[in-house]
């Protein structure tokens, strides 16, 4: 379900990532990114204590003490290092990770995002979401344009609890790429067969654009 769109978003984000960057991938769409890197090499950080995360091992080589933050078996790239959780979050919070690619529940038109709790439901999990929002040098949001029930996920104002005051830099959906600059959301690129007017209709947030729709 939606897998085509999810892969499309992952592939577009790959274009934003630079060779050799230190990157933390959140749950959901971001976990698809390693499959579409091509020749590009990133240094992936896993917040449970690994820098230099490699792909899934064959079943015979699985070690359940070598897992990703999503608790899936992984391998280590050459040059990888292992460390404890406090060191891992010093790395994240201290601004040593170049890019965090995060899924969200909502992002508002200033770039503030919500990715940990739904109002009215039990709020019992935050994990490393707020640390990544507070500390990564650059935040790229990977999200479908609308939620399962059709509500826009790019909104004027958050109605879900905020993950922090730090704003995202870029958001990529199946329809468009937007960037956030000084509290303003700007259309960078349209990714689907859709006009700017149609895009405005399905986007809760207000955004700036030029006459071709792809100025910025």
């Amino acid at each position: 379900m939606n897998q085509f769109e999810r892969i499309k978003i992952a592939k577009r984000i790959v274009q934003e990532l630079k060779q050799g960057q230190f990157v933390n991938l959140g749950v959901g769409i971001p976990t698809l990114i390693p499959d579409y890197l091509g020749e590009k090499k990133l240094v992936l950080q896993s917040e449970n204590g690994l820098l230099g995360m490699g792909p899934t091992p064959p079943a015979a080589e699985v070690n359940m003490d070598l897992i990703s933050a999503s608790k899936a078996p992984i391998t280590m790239e050459i040059g990888a290092s292992l460390f404890d959780s406090s060191n891992s979050f010093a790395m994240i919070r201290g601004g040593h990770i170049d890019v965090a690619v995060l899924g969200v529940l909502q992002v508002d038109q200033t770039g503030e995002l919500a990715n940990w709790a739904v109002p009215g439901q039990t709020i019992l999990g935050v994990g490393g979401a707020m640390d990544l929002v507070a500390g990564a040098k650059e935040i790229i949001v990977a999200t479908l344009h609308s939620s399962k029930n059709g509500d826009p996920k790019l909104v004027k104002e958050l109605t879900f609890p905020s993950s922090g005051i730090r704003k995202a830099d870029l958001v990529v959906t199946e329809h468009a790429v937007f960037k956030f600059e000084e509290g303003t959301m700007k259309l960078v690129e349209i990714l689907s067969d859709i006009s700017v007017e149609e895009l405005k209709e399905i986007t809760g947030a207000e955004f700036e654009y030029n006459s071709e729709g792809t100025d910025f």
Binding site: E47, D84, S85, S86, S88, F89, A90, I92, R93, T122, I123, L124, G125, V126, G127, G128, A129, M130, D131, G135
Partner: peptide, 19 residues
């Protein structure tokens, strides 16, 4: 257990917990 009031939960961000 939390919903039933049998377990108190204090939620802390993961990096804050480690630190």
């Amino acid at each position: 257990a939390w919903v039933d009031g049998e377990l108190e939960i204090e939620l802390i961000p993961q990096g804050t917990l480690a630190e």
